[in-house]
Write a protein that binds this DNA or RNA. Sequence first.
DNA 1: CGATATGTTGAGGTGGATCAAGTTAGGTGG
DNA 2: CCACCTAACTTGATCCACCTCAACATATCG
Lengths: 256, 256
Amino acid sequence: MSQTSDAQPAAAVTEIQAGAFDRPRCRRDGTSACEGCGVRAFSVCGSLATDELDALNTMSEKAHFAAKETLFLQGDRADFVFNITSGTLRLYKLLPDGRRQIVGFLLPGDFVGLSLSERYGFSADAIDAVSACRFDRSDFVAFVDRKPHLLRRLHEAATHELTVAQDHMVLLGRRSAEEKVSSFLLTMRERLHRLGASAVTIPLPMTRQDLADHLGLTLETVSRIVSKLAREKVLLVVPDGLRIMNPSRLEQIGAS
Amino acid sequence: MSQTSDAQPAAAVTEIQAGAFDRPRCRRDGTSACEGCGVRAFSVCGSLATDELDALNTMSEKAHFAAKETLFLQGDRADFVFNITSGTLRLYKLLPDGRRQIVGFLLPGDFVGLSLSERYGFSADAIDAVSACRFDRSDFVAFVDRKPHLLRRLHEAATHELTVAQDHMVLLGRRSAEEKVSSFLLTMRERLHRLGASAVTIPLPMTRQDLADHLGLTLETVSRIVSKLAREKVLLVVPDGLRIMNPSRLEQIGAS
DNA sequence: CGATATGTTGAGGTGGATCAAGTTAGGTGG
DNA sequence: CCACCTAACTTGATCCACCTCAACATATCG
């Protein structure tokens, strides 16, 4: 683990989604707990009963990470698992020469550490300010082993991630640059929609380089495609995001 | 489901690995059961005790598929899950215009249906003759729900597949054609090695088109890269396979 | 033995990469 | 509050890795 950063002051927490995910949850002080958690409905903990939630609450600690902070590196001992409550993460793998593939972006409600294994299989950075429920991995594993219901939920989350990964393989292996960018935006829209967001303006806290490393392109190509779609009035470039002006055209290009 | 083909005559079953995986196992006739199964050590069922194995054995039926036969298509109702006992499968997704991405090749010991979900998330074809233990999905799910130990094993298999998928994203998104082919061969060697095979000659029952659709290339590019590596004495092209003549050079090109 | 699937190789084209400016937007210290 | 600095982004010019198209070779199988 690179660091654990509970010491972050409650500095301006920029949210990918305004308002909905910015309050601390899953505290151990008991005043506010998992019951009131805004992301529970989208999370693996959503399967638990009240008494189980209390037990989980006791095990959890709120962690905060500043933008660009590294949560852990591939190969680190996996001391913790996390449930993201606000902000955006990039998960990535590096080749020895520095080439990077971002295997996914995490949003509120997403879980880090599905594999429950000894070491992290990828690296993770906060893109903007991130808050998360943090659990000691061995405590969490012990808890899971007593709750088949929770294991079942973790398994469902893992197989869902596997499907998402397979869809991304199609994108990386068989789609053009314009299709990649369009398809990515539609995927983000869908994810944000599930989180209750408007899904017309897609907030993009990540850089063009991040997008490129996720889509198997260069940052210049991403920039060019975005410019082209903006020129064609399919998108409107707004600060830290894109507004979808012509959804049906975007779906026509990016549909799978 | 496209078909279920128990009616396959015991025709010449070409094995990807000679001898080791060609006898029928997991029968319901009781004479020979999961206990003697050659792939059990590599499979999700490897976690079960003898009495549990017997229960599983009762639920299973041996299924055979001829080369090029389709087991199921993406979107089909997932009536069955399978444990492969011999042969090779391709799992793939199609885009509306026919472009194909092969998300994985399955070998003996691999499990199909990890997600336990209502519908298949990809299509599956037998490449050569395939034998498998077939389970009714709802029976299998009910069994899993009574055996947290087995669920845990399925979860481990799913998260392993997720890691494999993420590694493949790196390959598809960030590696050159020569690196893709080399890395693929090293991956196959490793998998065959774990199955107890010699791992010097890599049997390749799949076509160049299959390889291309797995690696995000065209069949011509795959052919050219293989020819180039053969010309450089890194590989030797043999019927339905490749012999690795210079492993360290291959690792130098394909290492991650 | 012809027919069809599969594989190899060559010639030429192109989508996206690379290289190179120049622009914009924050962030910081004076 | 402004001047500077740096990170992020955009756009243009050129290049090249891989694709496309085409011809031919080889293998398999009714």
